[in-house]
């Protein structure tokens, strides 16, 4: 397996607040990595650094062997990195189909007919096809989250970044989402998934990274990580008697 993504000592601070503190890890091709940590730990900032919405103060980010640290966000998307947003960011005055089409034509660079086909199939996969002609601004929160996933898929990513996509879902919807993400993963797409719904995360990922105050505090096999005293104390906010 080859390395798809590599973060090397990536640091970023806003004044006294450090959102990424010499963060380093690697992601293998086809791997699914889960990221957990308390609120404000710097998880979404890490996605912003990977996608180019933020520029690191120091360190470097490599994608498929290329240093992308100085690359624009748009170019990173076109090279194969797509994301969903924790707080959905739809193109509100465009239809659901057109939202997907933006990603397919500009993110994936598909031709008109290829893009139409890709969008229809992604909408079907995420269950949004019946809502295709509705303005994205009129969708419910859960539908907006599905649209985030649809758009990311339409960009035909090699690396998919999912930011708390299961938040607010019912148990049944959560199972359905896990199945969808497993399907996506089976196509060979590498995934990094930030999630607080741990059981959903553990059903998909091979490895967990725990972040607190922008620092990586643990990394490894999911069960071992979730059982570790350090993670329980820092992530769960409880003291553990051993």
């Amino acid at each position: 397996m080859s390395i798809v993504l590599k973060l090397q000592d990536v640091s970023k601070a806003f004044g006294a607040i450090t959102v990424s503190d010499e963060l380093s890890y690697e992601l293998q091709s086809g791997e699914a990595l889960g990221v957990i940590g308390p609120n404000g730990a710097g998880k979404t900032s890490m996605f912003n650094l990977i996608t180019g919405a933020l520029t690191p103060d120091s360190g470097s980010i490599w994608f498929n062997g290329t240093d992308i640290t100085g690359m624009s966000a748009a170019k990173r998307c076109r090279s194969g990195i797509a994301r969903s947003f924790q707080i959905p960011q739809p193109f509100g005055a465009m239809t659901v189909f057109e939202n997907a089409l933006v990603a397919a034509t500009h993110g994936a660079g598909l031709t008109k007919s290829e893009a139409n086909e890709q969008c229809l199939s992604a909408l079907e996969q995420t269950g949004l096809l019946p809502k295709a002609n509705i303005l994205a601004g009129n969708l419910t929160l859960l539908e907006r989250k599905r649209l985030e996933l649809t758009r990311a898929l339409c960009a035909k990513p090699k690396l998919l970044l999912l930011d708390e996509i299961a938040g607010g879902l019912t148990e049944k919807e959560c199972h359905s989402l896990v199945d969808t993400i497993k399907d996506i993963r089976s196509t060979g797409i590498s995934i990094i998934w930030i999630e607080h719904i741990v059981h959903a995360l553990l059903a998909v990922v091979d490895r967990l990274v725990v972040i607190d105050f922008g620092r990586k505090i643990a990394e490894g096999e999911p069960k071992a990580i979730m059982d570790s005293k350090q993670v329980k104390e820092i992530y769960m906010g409880i003291e553990v008697d051993v």
Binding site: A103, G107, A155
Partner: peptide, 8 residues
């Protein structure tokens, strides 16, 4: 923000 993230 989303437009940029979608490759525009």
């Amino acid at each position: 923000t989303a437009a940029q993230a979608m490759g525009i």
